[in-house]
Design a binder for these strands. Sequence first.
DNA 1: TCAAAAGTGTTAGATTTACACCCATGA
DNA 2: TCATGGGTGTAAATCTAACACTTTTGA
Lengths: 225, 225
Amino acid sequence: MTAYYLEHQKLYVSVDVIVFGFEENRLKVLIGRRQMDPGRGEWSLYGGFVAADEGIDECAERTLLELTGLKKLFIRQVGAFGAIDRDPGERVVSVAYYALINVKDYNEKLRLKHNVEWVDVNQLPTLYSDHNEMVCQALRRMQLKMRTEPIGFRLLPQLFTLTQLQRLYEAVNGQEIDKRNFRKRIKDMDFIEKTDLIDKDSSKRGAALYRFNKKAYKEDPNFKL
Amino acid sequence: MTAYYLEHQKLYVSVDVIVFGFEENRLKVLIGRRQMDPGRGEWSLYGGFVAADEGIDECAERTLLELTGLKKLFIRQVGAFGAIDRDPGERVVSVAYYALINVKDYNEKLRLKHNVEWVDVNQLPTLYSDHNEMVCQALRRMQLKMRTEPIGFRLLPQLFTLTQLQRLYEAVNGQEIDKRNFRKRIKDMDFIEKTDLIDKDSSKRGAALYRFNKKAYKEDPNFKL
DNA sequence: TCAAAAGTGTTAGATTTACACCCATGA
DNA sequence: TCATGGGTGTAAATCTAACACTTTTGA
């Protein structure tokens, strides 16, 4: 190591994950009560420290796997948070990531083990440190991304109805969408495929189930919502 | 300090700044030859380490002030870069920021002192570590931001002609714009004010000089380009 | 006198928005 | 039989994109 580095100080670097889920027509976030000091008992995002032998992206993936037990989730960085007093205990720079999961894929035992729960993103309590700000920025990022990339499907089951999809977009963007205009736009996207399966749970009449065809999307990626 | 932190390791955290400037109708970036090991002599962004007693945003501002001598510049975070082997010397997590300056405001002596120069963003050499990727992401961010917020003026003198403004947008987005459509959109934005001054340098006929009125923008912030 | 940049409107096409009724079914 | 959510098309309005000529003046 050159002398160059020695003049400087090292800091703790951590990762916090904003896990988004869609449930009861609401966009929700996984939060739990902190189980350690400082801030024990406060509502908080789930996170972990970056080890010297892992990249920050790997750390985020590891943390997310630890929390959810799920692999290959959609995850993106939000940014670094490094106000000097952001962590009351020590100097910690934290890198926030957001991830999307299908709530039904989340094992209930694991959820209870980590003592986290789904809370409506619009009704969050005050969170530990700067976590509210993290969620806020993550949400903005996700909203933007969802307009131009087909990531919303990550929040739904593989098979979904058009009404579910519409409610998802309404929940994420916080405003209602015209049903006919919405369905018109969906029809233009060939990679959102109608199956011949019918969902009978959500209505008496039954609704056609759709599926996102990733391969078809890659061949003609013209997504816009 | 609680035992909680002690189990973890600290890392070096640094900041790298992508300084954008507009010169000769091209979008340029400030880069220089690294003056220290590892990587001595390689093209590189300007950066610095985050000290224990400063926030990352303050560090970015300090670094930018050090480099440019200018205060109150527009600066935004791009994101954290933390691949395990990104720095060949030590484990360093770096947070990238981009900043916009008016090239003419940059003191030539300071530029020479730091041994940096303006290089066309589309003709960058291979840079140290992951700096090319940082520039790439910074550029994307900046392009997006410039469509919805009046930040382009930060790259121009206080008084500018409409052709200059158009060339700026063309350089940033890498595509030509129709002159009449561009000027029509500008006319709709009352906060881009025509002054009664004439620029005689750029053409024989002379072109009207315009000014961005920040106060007027805040009263009616309907920017779109 | 001519080269070079400034300045100026109109029209067709594409996109977006608003809007209302019938259908199928389980309770 | 009726309440509930599923499913469908059209027309007006807005926005976007394409396009060409006149003006001024320094060299």
